[in-house]
Design a protein around this nucleic acid. Structure first.
Lengths: 159, 159
DNA sequence: ATTGTTTTCCTAACAAATTAAGGCTAAATT
DNA sequence: AATTTAGCCTTAATTTGTTAGGAAAACAAT
């Protein structure tokens, strides 16, 4: 039982990372396989969980989401972490929530329409039990923002 | 000339944010329109640039991308910013690059397979002209990571 | 208020894409 | 060496998507 993806799988995945609605015949041309073979491979890549999902990416600016901020949060005592995470992830303006090394226990990436709603959010989380400190960096410009993984040939994958 | 999206557009966009390969007939059922009407709306939403693109999201863990780090970079002198940005965005391990307020001029989100390749990347950027300091926070766990915008009814959009 | 225009939607017909079925070949397994 | 399995193909059936044409509603202008 091999666990390696071949060149063809990598090409398919790379194409889908860039065009999530790509049609099977387009991909078939690229990888020089028939359409049913591409279908079958895509099905397996999804089944193995290599592809988590497909998303439409919207233009935040067009929807007036003008503020992106990284917020470092210091949550006091690891027994409070899970409460914090549970509450914070419910908020739709929180795009990301990670626990991290270094100063601050968590980093959030937040998107709001304006500074007022960011302030409101910051005020809110500061009222939460265990949140002792926050530090925010507001994004001035974004030069790159992707989730495309640089996967390569003969990639071995985890079960 | 109105610039508002109606309830139906919002539903379509929200569905596509969650399922970027959703079929038109599925969406048609949700919004109670015919398939050609949904097609036409999708076409317009794309044409207006509200939908930037569609992506397959891969499971980083399955591909052994075990390290995610946020790197604060202090680039000395704003005349060096553009060179820095140009160089850094070329690197496929750099998922995000933003200029920010506060200490450090830029924040990077980087994904690598291991600490060795992270270290290599850090060492590299520290050799670049103008890069005076970096500070890294390594991600221990990720609790939320999405690009889904919380768009609402009667959203007015920017041209 | 009425007329003309534009937008949005529908259905029906057509075209394209996807899936299913069946079979061949080569590689892997017994 | 025989058998199974995996991967691919072609063809056919099915499903999905597009085009065309026209009705109804919304909007604008008179």
């Amino acid at each position: 039982m091999t666990n390696l993806l071949d060149e063809t799988d990598i090409k398919i995945l790379n194409h889908l990372q860039e065009d999530g609605r790509a049609q099977r015949n387009t991909i078939a041309d690229i990888v020089h396989l028939s359409v049913p073979s591409v279908s079958e491979r895509m099905r397996k890549l999804e089944e193995k969980g290599l592809i988590i999902n497909y998303n439409a990416i919207l233009d935040a600016k067009k929807f007036h989401f003008d503020i992106t901020a990284f917020i470092f949060v210091e949550v006091d005592g690891s027994e409070r972490y899970s409460d914090f995470v549970e509450r914070v992830t419910e908020h739709p303006e929180v795009m990301e929530c990670h626990s991290i090394t270094g100063d601050g226990s968590h980093i959030l990436k937040v998107r709001t329409k304006n500074t007022e709603s960011l302030e409101k959010f910051l005020s809110l989380i500061q009222t939460w039990e265990g949140v002792t400190r926050t530090r925010s960096n507001i994004v001035l410009s974004t030069f790159k923002e992707t989730r495309k993984l640089p996967i390569e040939n003969a990639e071995d994958i985890k079960k």
